[in-house]
Design a protein around this nucleic acid. Structure first.
Lengths: 210, 210
DNA sequence: GGCGTCCTACAACTTTCGATGGATGCGGCT
DNA sequence: AGCCGCATCCATCGAAAGTTGTAGGACGCC
């Protein structure tokens, strides 16, 4: 076929690293040039090894996958980052792609699809898992209707922390009715009826930190 | 050493299954007798293969790890179940052990610890990852102060779904004041001030499903 | 049996939340 | 400039949520 594709694996689980390694080892055109157990290691190993592709988990200690992706995209332009993670919230997906990832796979990916994806990425193409594509398009077709303003986000974060409207008003230096007005807008945008659901939806979508 | 330990792997991620398999393949005393991609498969394969140990993920489609553990403990007494999962919420840990698991590992386990754990289990011992042990003991030392009753759980689940007290009362066939009374107890036990915080805490602790 | 404890249940009252309506100010667009 | 859209802000009012107090019934424990 073509020349060897150099792959770096970044995942904090030794078992998963071994799994990817053993799966890729069944194919002649992949070569694993390193394994990183956190984002920081991934960045330095990329600078040293100059792999073609990095298979990157998102949730890692020290430096998250998104931050590592950002730094690799900037510091090691020849290397292309593919996210390989368990769950895909809208927020994580968007942030990863913004950070410069050119592929996004879920860990339940069958071996064959993993090979196809990596080869496509190495050719310079992009590859998203079908589920990811679907969610991404759904997110985009749902126009900017649900984009919360800075102030609304601020209010929502306090609500998620369990604060009452009066408290939020005090900390933000506005009156309680204003807080309520923001909340009404938040409810509309998130399509919910009350603050409890709003917090759940926001957490689910990755709008606010868990 | 001693005789071979027959292992069955149950995980819905092909990569993880390959990872475990390749890690165990480095040791002469492990033999993999099957791989299951969901809980249901795990149960049937156990009945067929009679493995010594099952490495079981918790979150799987069709039949969850907890349910599969329960059935294997009942139907295939010779087989001992070890949970191997990513996150450990108190609720999942307790339910898994109640279901009959004799070991609990996290997926960031180093290879050596995985070997030690499996050999201990095969000898009839129990094995919990240090983190799991710690959380379990903390949970027990913190008396039954935060144990919600069945009814309180039911109410809390409806609250988490965004239901109003009146709606909850209707579906449970009780009056609204009663729902509020349950909520007061829930707030006390979870040490929060309102329903919004209660839902967050409950989700964080794994008391209610995400 | 008698006792305490806990789950469950209800009612009256206070506080908070959410709905509705409207005002101001800033920036883009024609 | 003038208009429009939108973010931010405030006020009022009915409807929820949360507080407090009380009580019956089940269970385990002297």
């Amino acid at each position: 076929m073509s020349k060897t594709i150099k792959v770096l694996i970044a995942d904090d689980h030794p078992i998963v690293r071994s799994g990817i390694a053993s799966v890729l080892a069944t194919q002649p055109d992949f070569e694993i040039v390193g394994e990183a157990s956190n984002g920081m290691e991934a960045v330095t190993l990329c600078a040293e090894q100059r792999p073609d592709v990095v298979l990157m988990d998102l949730r890692m200690p020290v430096l998250s996958g998104v931050e590592a992706t950002q730094r690799i995209a900037r510091e090691t332009p020849g290397t292309r980052v593919v996210i390989l993670t368990t769950y895909a919230t809208d927020g994580e997906m968007l942030r990863a792609i913004e950070a410069g990832a050119v592929g996004y796979l879920l860990k339940d990916v069958p071996h064959e699809e993993l090979f196809r994806a990596l080869r496509a990425i190495a050719r310079g193409e992009r590859y998203l898992a079908p589920v990811v594509t679907e969610r991404l398009m759904a997110h985009l077709q749902q126009p900017t209707r649900d984009a919360l303003t800075q102030r609304e986000l601020e209010v929502l974060r306090h609500v998620a922390a369990g604060a009452a409207n009066k408290e939020i008003a005090a900390t933000l230096g506005i009156t309680e009715p204003t807080v309520k007005a923001h909340l009404v807008h938040i409810f509309e945008k998130l399509d919910v009826e009350n603050r409890t659901s709003a917090v759940r939806v926001a957490v689910d979508r990755g709008i606010i930190a868990t």
